[in-house]
Simulated scan of single mutants.
Amino acid sequence: MANTQTDATVRDRAFALLQRLLPTRWLSMLVFRITQIRHAGFKNALIRLFLRGFSVDLSEAEYAIPENYDSFNHFFTRALKPGMRPLAADPQALLSPVDGTISQFGDIRDGRIFQAKGHEYSVTELLAGDAEAAQVFMNGRFCTIYLAPYNYHRIHMPLEGRLRKWSYVPGRLFSVNAATARALPRLFARNERLNAVFDTRAGPFGLTLVGALFVGSLETVWAGRVTPPHLRGEPAHYQPMNPVILGRGEELGRFNMGSTVILLAAPGAVEFDPTLAPGRTVRMGEAIGRWRQHG
């Protein structure tokens, strides 16, 4: 057992080292451009190749025939047929915003979020130094959900909210799979990401969309495509020009390839479902907990 664990650790570290050496922004831009190609023969072959490699249930999708998609990206960000993701009946259910796998969840202790054994990062780092936004989540709760390539890749509201502010944070584009999370400290605070803070009946609520290797394209319903291009430099913070109010379960954005979503809740705002556990798969719209009325 000890040798097996050691071998796994060595593989994780080697994979992380390889990523440090790769031109991740250039590779991600290349993949993005390939996924936009509309040539019928090329995009159909790419979609068919993907379907052979991953189990994708196209019977749920708006278009069940691969040839009906304009590009690989159109297929990857596919809409679902109406009713495929019913929302939990309890009006105070905290909805899963995506289809994915629970990576970690729990308390934010001393302003820090658990990433994997031996690794954590701060809320302030995640929110790109926005101390005011970070303060409201100190001693609150978090939930990290990983989207695999075969998952549905649109992101929805866990509860109704009004967008208070959002930011684009330039960064690296490391993989966000479990191996990299185990090997690379502060992974989610290093990668390119988009942070959004909403005012809700449960108080301030944060969602972070994390970009990753080959999958660094982020899009929201209020700003359109945010990346690419993959910029360097300081974070860009924005106040909404017009009110952005989104209902529970309403689409807020999408990954034009997949990655990770992190939920942030203020102290006392959320109780997670007692059956929730790392490694559990979730579907958009199902209850992962309950929220409490703020104040």
Rank of each mutant, 00 (worst) to 15 (best):
R190I: 09
G140R: 03
G106R: 11
A133W: 10
F42M: 08
T208N: 01
F42G: 04
A40L: 08
S96C: 14
F114L: 08
T9C: 07
K165N: 13
A40E: 15
G268P: 12
I262W: 02
R254E: 14
E192V: 03
Q19N: 12
T101K: 10
N195L: 03
D199A: 12
M1H: 13
G247M: 09
A236E: 13
A179W: 07
P149G: 04
I155Y: 05
F214Q: 04
M257N: 11
P82V: 03
E120W: 14
R78G: 04
R48I: 03
W222L: 05
T101A: 07
D99K: 01
S59C: 03
P91T: 02
N139Q: 15
R283A: 11
S167G: 08
T144Y: 02
I65T: 14
H230A: 08
P23A: 05
L22H: 07
D273T: 00
L173Y: 04
L194H: 08
N256D: 10
I108G: 04
P267W: 13
Q135I: 04
L126V: 00
A14H: 08
E192G: 00
A277M: 13
R13S: 07
G211L: 10
Y69L: 10
I65W: 05
L187R: 00
A178Y: 11
N139F: 09
T260L: 07
G171H: 06
G111Y: 08
R20D: 15
R52M: 12
T124H: 08
L22Q: 11
V136A: 05
T24D: 09
T24E: 11
Y168Q: 09
N256G: 02
E219P: 00
G279N: 04
